[in-house]
Amino acid sequence: MLNIRRDICGYCGACVSVCPEGALELVDAFLTVDTACINCGICEKVCPLGALEVVKE
């Protein structure tokens, strides 16, 4: 699953634009992820601040 570190996230939306599944959504000042997420890790790489982590279940 994708863990969003809200204490780190700058809610810029860079991750939303590269998400191939459209699973991320920037709602004003916070980011959400829905069940379409496939844990591909692209958003984890692109984040300028390191706020996203794919957690192995």
Binding site: C12, G13, A14, V16, S17, V18, C19, P20, G22, E25, L26, I42, K45, V46, C47, P48
Partner: peptide, 22 residues
Amino acid sequence: IESKFAKWAGIDTTVPLREIET
């Protein structure tokens, strides 16, 4: 950049990872 509207309407707007500047 965080556009979702066109995607919801069926247009692929995904930016390839190597083609975004973070």
